[in-house]
Amino acid sequence: MLVREVMTQPALSLPVGATIDEAMRLLVSARISCLPVVDERDRVVGVVSESDVLRDPLEPDPRAHARSSVPPPPRHHQVESVMTRGPFTTHERADVADVAAVFAERGWKSIPVVHDDRLVGVISRSDVVRALSRCDEEIQADVRLRLASDGLPGWRVRVCDAEVTVSGVRSRRDASLAEAVAASVRGVRRVVVLPPEQTAVTTQIGRR
């Protein structure tokens, strides 16, 4: 799977001049935990998360503290004062398997997706999990539909635990085509193509 096939688009974002209050309202209304921050050309210059907006000091509740003459620290007002600058991004044709590995290693919840340095979408852990949660029947139907649309309805398709097995191909060129078509379907984790001699050609998605 490619990032463009599972990402959320268009992406919600904030202009670099937005306020922290605007960021909080959008995070709450969209029920997300992180937002890209873009400049006037839609280039990603930062990301702002729930933890970032909490860096804006809160006024202490006097009921919970002994009286103090120390004034509270000054508030931040603009997103750019608390955002993470120069964030990690990915691109539309990146492999979802590589993005999933980044999520697992870094613990991030989302990554901005760019094309020619401009924001085009966001891929989140939820997007990846949603794609991987598809049932075998849905995957099989999609693979068959895509093969038929490419003029290849005679190939046989079987799906078990998100592993697609394609048989009926007549050449190695056909095998490569079958592999490419099946691997492009959301939720596919592995592709096995059986050529005429029944020697399986196996591809682990994202491990080429």
Rank of each mutant, 00 (worst) to 15 (best):
W155A: 00
G154S: 10
L132M: 15
R186H: 11
T165H: 04
V129P: 08
V159A: 03
D174T: 10
C135Q: 12
I123H: 02
A162I: 04
R173H: 10
S133K: 08
Q140E: 11
C160L: 12
R134M: 14
D127F: 00
S149P: 03
A175D: 13
S184M: 00
G154M: 12
D161V: 05
G121V: 00
E137M: 15
A182E: 06
G187W: 02
E138M: 08
A175G: 15
R172T: 13
D136K: 08
D136C: 07
A148C: 05
D127E: 04
R134N: 15
A131R: 01
R156L: 09
I123P: 07
R144Y: 01
V157I: 06
V169M: 15
S126M: 14
S126E: 12
L132V: 09
Q140S: 14
V164C: 06
D142I: 04
A180C: 11
D142R: 09
Q140F: 07
R134K: 14
R146P: 02
V185H: 10
Q140C: 15
E138A: 10
V185N: 11
S167D: 13
W155L: 04
V164P: 08
V129N: 07
V166F: 07
V122N: 04
V122S: 04
V185C: 09
E137F: 11
R170W: 11
A175Q: 11
G154D: 10
W155P: 00
A178M: 04
D142G: 10
R189A: 08
L152Q: 07
R156H: 12
R172Q: 11
R189V: 09
V181H: 03
T165A: 07
R125E: 11
G154R: 15
W155S: 01
V129K: 06
R172D: 13
G154C: 08
R158Q: 10
V169P: 07
V157H: 04
S133R: 10
